[in-house]
């Protein structure tokens, strides 16, 4: 990639599940330190886009990462089996051990997401939805990623906590020039934290700064209902 500061370039990306096309021909790029929001209704392919970006799904088109880029991924949720006897500490150690990072990075990551050290000893199964999400973010932050893909949970995390998470990520962006791409269901957060926004409903409806890209007409078209403007006009 010769484009300076460009960390990810997506060109003509499509994803098929069998016969049905989940994502249709989308193109965008993300630069260092940028904060990119992806919005769209349920089933619009947002999570699929992330999974294609990390290489978990087959796709057509081009996904080009800057050389040597470290990706942190925060999934919307994980399916925890009750037979999985992992504590939060075990879970975070999985990454440090596979990648040969020192033990100390676990505590650093934990501090960043405001989890008390005592939660390390809790079983993943016993964490609250909010704690688990922080745990997942801590996992993603281990090893100082260049880019964080953050799939916001749809339920279980209360708003003040969610804002605290975004503040933390924002702070990390300033400090480490980390790029963040986040999937959000809350347009308030998009207006506040995103430098650019992608509107996705299988196809890409918009790409640009939230102020210019998100017109009421576009939101109507994207969500197929007049839900959004009262909030944002």
């Amino acid at each position: 990639m010769n484009n300076q500061g460009c960390i990810l370039k997506v060109d003509g990306l499509s994803v098929f599940f069998g016969q049905s096309q989940i994502i249709k021909n989308i193109s965008f790029e993300a630069r260092k330190g940028e904060s990119l929001a992806i919005i769209g209704p349920n089933g619009s392919g947002k999570t699929v886009l992330f999974r294609a970006l990390i290489g978990s799904l087959d796709y057509t088109g081009k996904i080009e990462w800057a050389p040597g880029v470290r990706i942190g991924y925060v999934p919307q949720r994980i399916d925890l089996d009750r037979y999985l006897s992992l504590t939060l500490e075990d879970f975070l150690s999985l990454k440090t051990k596979v990648l040969h990072f020192p033990r100390a990075v676990i505590n650093e990551a934990l501090k960043m997401v405001h989890l008390p050290p005592a939660t390390l000893k809790s079983s993943l199964n016993n964490l609250s939805a909010g704690q688990l999400q922080r745990g997942l973010i801590a996992f993603a932050l281990i090893g100082s990623p260049d880019i964080l893909l953050f799939d916001e949970p749809t339920a279980g995390v209360d708003l003040p906590r969610e804002e605290q998470i975004y503040e933390t990520l924002h702070h990390l962006q300033d400090k480490q020039q980390m790029t963040v791409i986040f999937i959000s269901h809350d347009l308030n957060l998009v207006y506040r934290y995103a430098t650019k926004v992608i509107c996705l409903n299988r196809e890409m409806f918009c790409f640009g700064s939230p102020q210019t890209a998100l017109s009421p007409e576009l939101l109507d078209k994207l969500y197929g209902a007049r839900i959004a403007h009262r909030h944002f006009e």
Partner: peptide
């Protein structure tokens, strides 16, 4: 560690290679 991570989430496992 690899097997356990792959059990927790194949996507997370993928991001650590």
């Amino acid at each position: 560690e690899r097997i356990a991570l792959s059990l927790v989430s194949q996507d997370l496992a993928k991001t650590v290679g």
